[in-house]
């Protein structure tokens, strides 16, 4: 599994050090519930960053602000040189074609078959795909996640792990440059969870993506991260590699690594 660790590449290539995603001074509150208070984060090309945080700490809120599903109160989210909160729908759609989002609950369209689920983003993005390209890519992506045989099934007929893979396939279908994973292993058994993490790493390898992963699964943090960010009280409380953070003496950080 040495292929998974590749910090050297980043140091070798100066261009790759340019962040593809830059979150600055992000504020978000729901009424009196101040969820994000001055949150900052950078994601470099080809890098995997894991965001750690307790349940309810605002990880999902943060990641939704990144794709424009939520409008932050303050702050900026720069992706591909554009500030997401300021974009209109059309520009947002252009950016979104390059960003994959794996939902915490998969969010598969349960009125559609697996094929239709995968075709949906391809048919509706601003990029035009030929009929053959759509077909070919659906099959290819399903093979990537190892579920080619489920193509005509309904999501309800699949197990939780399979659904997660299909959701992952749908996230990948547009070949995004950045993938945002919202708790990809939560609710799965450890073995399936491990498989999903391996899959994520393979994908990262194959399509050369950058990943922002939300998780509180230590296995995931350990194997999938180049860098770890700890989100506590609405801000980036600590940051570093997995190794560095395990050595951190702050009790709030230490909690996560026991």
């Amino acid at each position: 599994m040495d292929q998974l660790i590749k910090p050297e590449i980043n140091e070798d290539n100066q261009e790759l050090n340019e962040p593809v995603l830059k979150i600055q001074n992000l504020f978000k509150s729901f009424g009196d519930n101040h969820v994000l208070i001055d949150f900052n984060l950078e994601l470099k090309k080809g890098e995997s960053v894991v965001v750690l945080g307790k349940s309810g700490s605002g990880k999902s809120v943060m990641i939704k602000c990144v794709v424009g599903l939520l409008q932050p109160d303050k702050g900026s989210v720069i992706m591909f040189g554009k500030n997401i909160p300021e974009l209109d729908d059309e520009e947002l759609d252009r950016i979104r074609a390059k960003v994959g989002f794996l939902f915490q609950g998969n969010a598969l369209y349960d009125s559609m078959t697996v094929r239709e689920n995968l075709e949906f983003p391809m048919r509706r993005t601003w990029i035009q795909f030929s009929q053959e390209e759509v077909k070919r890519r659906v099959v290819e992506t399903l093979e990537d996640v190892g579920l080619a045989h489920t193509i005509d099934m309904m999501p309800a007929e699949l197990s939780g792990g399979m659904r997660k893979r299909i959701a992952l396939a749908r996230t990948l279908i547009l070949r995004p440059e950045i993938i945002l994973y919202d708790e990809p292993t939560t609710g799965l058994d450890p073995i399936t969870g491990k498989e999903i993490i391996e899959l994520m790493n393979e994908i990262q390898e194959k399509y050369n993506t950058s990943s922002l992963i939300i998780s509180h699964d230590m296995k995931c943090v350990q194997t999938a991260s180049d860098r770890v960010v700890v989100l506590i009280e609405g801000r980036c409380y600590a940051m570093g590699t997995y190794k560095e953070l395990t050595q951190n003496t702050d009790p709030k950080v230490n909690e996560f690594f026991e």
């Binding site: 979104r96 989002f101 969010a107 983003p121 509706r124």
Partner: peptide, 21 residues
Amino acid sequence: AELGSMRVTEQIDAMEVSGTN
């Protein structure tokens, strides 16, 4: 019920991220 469950299971959000209004 249909839109409600789509909302609850984030399918509506998923559509939005897929470049669909």
